[in-house]
């Protein structure tokens, strides 16, 4: 895909006054990693930022630079088959063990930046559906919810599958409120709702991890 090149401005030794209300978003650690990544300003030295913040941001940047393309390539090239492991799953699981916080942030970043790429979105959803709900929250359920409002039924289905696999009580709350245009998806949602109700009531348990 041909990407439009955007000029980047990198500023040297710029000091930003902390009394500016949130203009530099120093209070947040955004999905972009670097607070200026979506801005044309790039600050090399952030004198008003604490050392810990700098280390955190730089660590995330390094983690992201190392792993983002690897994950995207695996998602694009993989053939996903329900019931079986995939290459991207191995990669993401291994990154999760290395640093679950950064991995979740990176998955969030990839999800949003590639939201129009069905292949990547489906791959991500199929992968996170195999994580435990508590491990992948809140970004996992956030992605699954976003999937439910996607225009493509395949993506919507992946969102429902994720909720089914997680089997959390939260899944029931969400699925009870969702309406799908496609009849087969509506039937599937109803099936999943019945299953979750049965599991929670009869077995006192749900499928939390597959």
């Amino acid at each position: 895909m041909f990407k439009k090149s955007i000029p980047k401005f990198i500023i040297y030794d710029q000091k930003y006054d902390q009394n500016f209300l949130n203009i530099d978003n120093q209070d947040i650690y955004s999905i972009n990693g670097h607070k200026y990544e979506s801005n044309y300003f790039k600050v090399n030295q952030k004198s008003t930022e604490s050392t810990n913040d700098t280390v955190l941001r730089e660590s995330y940047e390094s983690f992201k630079n190392h792993n983002k393309e690897k994950i995207i390539d695996a998602l694009l090239l993989n053939d996903f088959e329900y019931g079986y492991n995939s290459t991207s799953e191995f990669i993401i699981q291994s990154l999760f063990k290395e640093n679950s916080i950064f991995t979740k942030d990176l998955l969030n970043d990839i999800f949003i930046s590639n939201f129009d790429n069905k292949i990547i979105i489906i791959g991500l959803l199929k992968t996170i559906a195999h994580f435990e709900y508590t491990d992948i929250s809140p970004i996992g359920p956030t992605m699954a919810l976003a999937a439910l409002s996607y225009s493509d039924p395949e993506v919507q289905e992946c969102g429902i599958r994720a909720y089914e696999n997680w089997g959390h009580a939260d899944s029931l709350k969400v699925l009870n409120k969702i309406k799908c245009e496609q009849e087969w998806l509506s039937q599937y949602i109803n099936q999943v709702i019945e299953i979750l109700e049965e599991e929670l009531i009869i077995y006192g348990t749900t499928c939390t991890k597959n």
Partner: peptide, 12 residues
């Protein structure tokens, strides 16, 4: 708009 998450540094 796509929902996502952001980490608030002060609350880490």
């Amino acid at each position: 708009f796509i929902p996502g998450t952001v980490r608030e540094i002060a609350k880490i």
